[in-house]
Design a protein around this nucleic acid. Structure first.
Lengths: 206, 206
DNA sequence: TAATAGTTTAACTAAATAGTTAAATCAATT
DNA sequence: AATTGATTTAACTATTTAGTTAAACTATTA
């Protein structure tokens, strides 16, 4: 046998599939595209992974995990709200600078097939609503203590996630409006980390 | 001739095409789906509109227009910044409550085919960057006058648009986290109009 | 050297899909 | 009643695509 352990082909295929599915979405992705991207042929694709659906499931689940990962840990960790907000923004923007197609891919496929969301919620140990509850408790505490102004925690969480994630979804629009290229976009997004954090903390002042 | 003027069939087709393309995207949309949705057959579809691509172009351009419409008028209008921010949020949330699939459809297709953005920018009378410039001038004026704190106008505009639009893209996620249904989602979004406006104005205080 | 697993090639099947066409049908108009 | 345009039916074509298969080839390893 050639390489039983370091089967680099499987890795190459998965990476290629990740790229193609994530950029094009399930319907527009072609097995031929994936094969070419992996530097192999279609036959070998099916030799490793039986079908397009099976491959897509692997990739999609991985992407969902990447997209939602980290957020839970941050929310459930010890620490004051301000630090958590900083951490969420930093975490999201860092992930999305490395994987700009992540949100549009995951959210597009979730919109096509919302049951998947519930599937994923069931599979995940903690139900997503647990996170909101934990977050809400902390927000309400800080409101009661007079540390921040009164605000609906759900709306605050939506604000945080929106400002971190949306610009990556609207990237072509933003590039056009700012008259810049991919590099310029990245620069703006890096600066954005601090800008958004400041914006939120300012909005929470009593 | 049966109905030369009130050709309701053409309308039905366009409406059906709008629905199917907007919900599924170009690649996943089937001509058969559109025909069924319009209550006719595939042959008649091609009798009215030659090809899938031609139909898609019609729908896509209409959707892009709907998605971006209004924003320009608001930004270019007379009036103080605060009122414009209120107007933008109200306008976006109102449009998206009526057309929840608008942003994910337009942005997904623009990400697939970013040149379209430039095409559209060229076709539109005012280049989108004009809007940002006008907006920037007004923001800088209000900063100088001490009405709002110092902030990068691009980042502020991104914040406004993000908070208004993103929740509609992340609808399945939000429904799961909030443990609610479509009706509950709409209620939250209606409340959101005021919440987001307050949030932004608070964040802009000196 | 022989066996073996990975890989390619190339031809294939089966299904889905866009698009076309001709004939028939239907409903209103003249 | 004859005409006309809208619509359906149903059979097509051509293309794309997922998936299969058998045979040949390759490099490793036992």
């Amino acid at each position: 046998m050639k390489e039983k352990l370091d089967n680099e082909t499987e890795k190459a295929i998965l990476e290629a599939a990740g790229k193609v599915f994530t950029c094009k979405g399930f319907a527009a992705a072609r097995m031929e595209d994936i094969a070419k991207e992996a530097g192999i042929n279609r036959a070998l694709l099916h030799y490793y992974f039986r079908s397009k659906d099976k491959m897509f499931d692997l990739i999609f689940n991985k992407r969902v995990h990447e997209f939602f990962s980290g957020l839970g840990e941050i929310v459930l960790s010890e620490g004051i709200l301000e630090e958590k907000i900083r951490a969420i923004i930093e975490h999201e923007i860092t992930i999305l600078l490395a994987h700009p197609y992540l949100p549009i891919f995951v959210l597009q496929e979730l919109n096509q097939n919302p049951e998947r969301m519930l599937d994923h919620a069931r599979k995940a140990g903690a139900h997503p609503s647990i996170l909101l509850k934990k977050f809400s408790i902390q927000v309400k505490e800080e409101i009661k203590k007079g540390k921040i102004r009164a605000i609906d925690p759900s709306q605050l969480l939506m604000n945080i996630m929106s400002m971190a994630i949306y610009p990556f979804i609207a990237k072509p629009v933003i590039k056009t409006i700012l008259e810049t290229d991919d590099v310029g976009f990245e620069v703006v997004m890096k600066r954005r980390e601090k800008e958004v954090t400041d914006f939120i903390l300012q909005a929470l002042k009593v």
